[in-house]
């Protein structure tokens, strides 16, 4: 019986070395282009098809499952050192569809589309009935906690005045009644002691980012805030080698290509940890 029609693609196993190398290059690309939220790590390769590409190379069409780590997107810590957010901490899963070109043993991303989904309340409750759940980032208590924590940090830090870049995560803790918040900050051209109107403070040309974790506890007659910030060294920013112009990477909506991407080699470790401050 004549063999069936030859498929225009081949399907290696999802755990083959070649598939895993393409998947790791894809996750690396995602993390190098993330500006908000947290780095993601590869959890499972769901599907792979490899298409021949004229005149040279092959394109891996991958469907990947990722998991959120606890490193902020702008944290220079190598991904391997970023711990995965566990179920009891209200994990977040990513689903990515990626096209990775392999040519002359080089891997470059041609297309990436990702979205992320927090685990269900029920799943968290199953492993930890008392654990706090993620709150909406615009929850008034979460926003207030981030503002109060940043004000406390600036008040006790006699260097640059830091502005809020984004609130990355918030949780409302029932007992003791408190709000836990994680947020990213950026240094401005103002000095904390001389700030009259923060609106006039501009982010530094050579960006200096930081990442803060804080708890605001409601007390009788007031509130108490404890905040710890890690300020990252300014990084010599090198443009990430873009895929060849003939096939510009079409980044997913969540990835912004605007800012150049620090080269992994040039990243310095976090420089300064300040806090906790109460």
């Amino acid at each position: 019986v004549p063999a069936g029609p030859r498929l225009p693609y081949r399907e290696p196993a999802c755990d083959d070395l070649e598939t895993e190398q393409a998947a790791l290059a894809a996750v690396d690309y995602i993390n190098q282009n993330l500006r908000h939220g947290y780095k993601h790590t590869l959890n499972q390769i769901d599907k792979v098809r490899v298409w021949q590409r004229r005149p040279f190379g092959e394109v891996y069409h991958l469907e990947l499952d990722t998991l959120e780590t606890q490193c902020h997107a702008r944290d220079p810590t190598p991904l391997a050192n970023c711990s995965v957010r566990q179920v009891f901490q209200h994990a977040v899963e990513g689903d990515c569809e990626m096209h990775v070109l392999k040519q002359d043993d080089r891997l470059s991303v041609l297309f990436a589309k990702c979205d992320s989904t927090p685990d269900s309340r029920e799943d968290v409750r199953k492993v930890c009935p008392q654990c706090p759940l993620m709150a909406p980032l615009n929850d008034t208590k979460v926003v207030h906690a981030a503002d109060a924590a940043l004000a406390a940090f600036n008040a006790q830090n006699n260097g640059s005045y830091f502005k809020l870049l984004e609130i990355s995560r918030g949780q409302l803790v029932p007992l003791p009644a408190s709000t836990y918040v994680e947020f990213a900050v950026a240094a401005t051209d103002c000095v904390t002691t001389g700030v009259t109107d923060p609106a006039n403070c501009k982010l530094l040309a050579e960006k200096q980012y930081g990442f803060c974790k804080a708890t605001l506890t409601e007390k009788l007659g007031g509130e108490e805030v404890a905040v710890t910030c890690t300020i990252f060294q300014t990084q010599p920013v090198a443009l990430q080698p873009q895929p060849d112009a003939a096939n510009p990477a079409s980044p997913p909506p969540a990835l912004d290509q605007a800012a150049p991407v620090p080269s992994a080699a040039g990243l310095a470790a976090a420089a300064l940890v300040v806090g906790p401050k109460v």
Binding site: E11, D15, N43, Q44, D46, D65, A91
Partner: peptide
């Protein structure tokens, strides 16, 4: 008791090519 024809004694089981292994946990 005759062995079932055609069923390998487990030695020939090949894992499905996809999805691949889970590196952390599934949610």
């Amino acid at each position: 008791k005759g062995a079932q024809p055609g069923i390998a004694g487990g030695a020939g089981l090949v894992p499905p090519p996809c999805p691949g292994r889970i590196r952390h946990f599934k949610i």
